[in-house]
């Protein structure tokens, strides 16, 4: 039992954090968008484009000049991150233009972005690297490395807290730590700043914002820029911060939608969003650690275990978690009454 606690549970929690990170970032991205009244089912597409941009530009930046790269050494990973954020913001702005300026249907715009992302990443990937849509394997300097926090080694032998600090808290890359900082930051922005107050208002009643003399359009664009940045981070994490070390076709595999489910589960609030995505992360960790699970009276097959996060998504979306009230003006373009 002690063994299970110290080893399995720590290991599971550790990988839960890794799995949860991109979900958390995407979930927070969705939070900004939907709190401002713009439905965003294009999180998936934005992440995918970001993951590709990160993988491709990090690879290019790190390659030697002879191979057609820019030979930037350790800066390559940052080039990749920047590319991811820019690519994701561009996608977010397409969605913004369609749904805010042109007042189009936000669901359709989101679906279009997802399809576009699935196609364009493979198309450009094949054109640039000729590897069937993949980007080259990333090496040191081209990807995010684990950060060993101070005293992790020396405190390792302290009972309970030592292993927790060393195995669970220490040893993640920068984006993981950043994502948890962003949770706190989002809470502060949402509830303690002028921008947050206005953003929450514009998602509930844009008329109230407009008549208070504030531009609805500017507010919504600002929120979607933040959505773009966060999806960029999420995508960059997938290709630069995981064992994949590079972009693979459809590598987001539905994480954008799971993030949306988590957002509903969390009732559009940042702290619950963290817990919700950690729950999904934990299920994914369980699924990948235990290929099959022997319950004594029956054996759960590996496919079932891997499907756990998706099953939970369906359960949540089917409304088994109680009433979740979305921002009232969500999905509706703002038109002054006539």
């Amino acid at each position: 039992m002690m063994d299970f606690l110290t080893n399995d549970l720590l290991q599971l929690s550790d990988s839960a954090i890794r799995f949860a990170t991109p979900l958390l970032l995407a979930c927070l991205a969705g939070l900004y968008s939907e709190r401002a009244g713009i439905f965003d089912i294009g999180l998936e597409g934005k992440m995918l484009v970001a993951a590709f941009a990160a993988g491709a530009f990090s690879a290019l930046a790190g390659m030697s000049v002879d191979d057609g790269g820019w030979n930037m050494g350790g800066a390559a990973v940052w080039v990749g991150l920047l590319a991811a954020i820019i690519a994701s913001i561009i996608m977010a702005m397409i969605h913004a233009f369609a749904s805010i300026t042109l007042r189009g249907n936000q669901l359709i715009s989101g679906v279009a972005i997802n399809f576009f992302a699935a196609g364009i990443t493979v198309l450009i990937g094949q054109y640039w690297f000729k590897m069937g849509g993949q980007t080259p394997q990333l090496h040191e300097g081209q990807r995010f490395e684990p950060i060993i926090l101070p005293f992790a080694k020396s405190l390792q032998d302290v009972p309970v807290l030592g292993p927790v600090y060393h195995d669970l808290i220490s040893g993640h890359n920068i984006i993981v730590y950043l994502s948890f900082v962003i949770v706190a930051l989002t809470w502060l922005i949402l509830y303690r700043t002028r921008f947050g107050l206005r953003m929450r208002a514009v998602g509930e009643n844009p008329g109230a914002v407009d008549t208070a003399g504030i531009s609805v359009v500017k507010l919504r664009y600002s929120a979607l820029i933040i959505t773009g940045i966060l999806c960029g981070l999420a995508g960059a994490y997938l290709s630069l911060g995981t064992a994949a070390a590079g972009f693979g076709k459809d590598m987001t595999s539905g994480r954008g939608f799971i993030a949306l489910a988590a957002l509903i589960f969390a009732k559009w609030k940042p702290i619950p969003a963290m817990w919700a995505t950690l729950l999904f992360g934990m299920l994914e960790a369980v699924g990948s650690k235990y290929q099959t699970l022997d319950l004594g009276f029956m054996v759960l097959p590996g496919q079932f275990m891997q499907a756990l996060p998706y099953i939970l998504t369906v359960v949540i979306l089917a409304g088994f978690v109680g009433k979740a009230i979305p921002p009232k003006a969500g999905g509706e373009p703002y038109v002054k009454e006539r």
Binding site: A201, E204, D210, A212, K328
Partner: peptide
């Protein structure tokens, strides 16, 4: 039709934009 944010408090509605 009142231009109020329904899930905000009175105070929040008053300061919104000001």
């Amino acid at each position: 039709h009142f231009m109020l944010v329904e899930n905000f408090t009175v105070l929040e509605n008053v300061i919104l934009g000001a």
